[in-house]
Amino acid sequence: MHGPAMSGWLLMALCALTGASCLLRTRNETGEGLRAARAEALMGFGMAAMAVPAAVVPPPAWGWAVYAVLFGAASLRALWFSRHRGHHRHHLVGSAAMVYMALTMAPGGAAAQGGPGGHAGHGTAAAAGGIPLLTGLLLAYYAVYVVRSGARLIPVAAASGGGDGGGPAKGGWGARPELALACRLAMGMAMFAMLLAL
Rank of each mutant, 00 (worst) to 15 (best):
G46H: 10
M47F: 02
M47C: 07
A48T: 09
A49L: 15
V52R: 02
P53F: 03
A54F: 12
A54G: 13
A54S: 15
A55R: 15
A55Q: 14
V57W: 13
V57D: 07
V57E: 07
P58E: 14
A61H: 13
A61P: 06
A61T: 15
W62N: 04
A65Q: 12
A68K: 10
G72Q: 03
A73V: 15
A74N: 10
S75L: 14
L76T: 08
W80V: 14
W80H: 14
W80Y: 14
F81W: 15
S82E: 11
R83H: 12
G86R: 15
H90I: 14
H90F: 11
H90W: 09
H91L: 03
A96Q: 06
A96M: 10
A97N: 05
M98G: 03
V99H: 05
Y100K: 07
Y100R: 05
A102E: 06
L103V: 05
T104Q: 02
T104L: 02
A106L: 08
A106Y: 04
P107V: 11
A112E: 07
G115A: 11
G115S: 10
H119V: 08
G121F: 01
H122P: 00
A125C: 02
A125W: 00
A127P: 00
I131N: 13
L134E: 00
L134P: 00
L134V: 05
T135N: 05
G136A: 02
L137E: 08
L139H: 02
A140W: 05
A143S: 09
V144F: 04
V146A: 15
R148G: 03
R148L: 13
S149P: 01
A151Q: 14
R152K: 13
R152L: 12
L153Y: 13
I154E: 08
I154K: 06
P155I: 09
V156P: 01
A157I: 15
A159K: 14
A159F: 11
S160W: 02
G161K: 12
G162M: 07
G163W: 07
G166P: 03
G166Y: 12
P168F: 10
A169Q: 12
K170F: 09
G172W: 09
W173G: 13
A175I: 02
A175P: 05
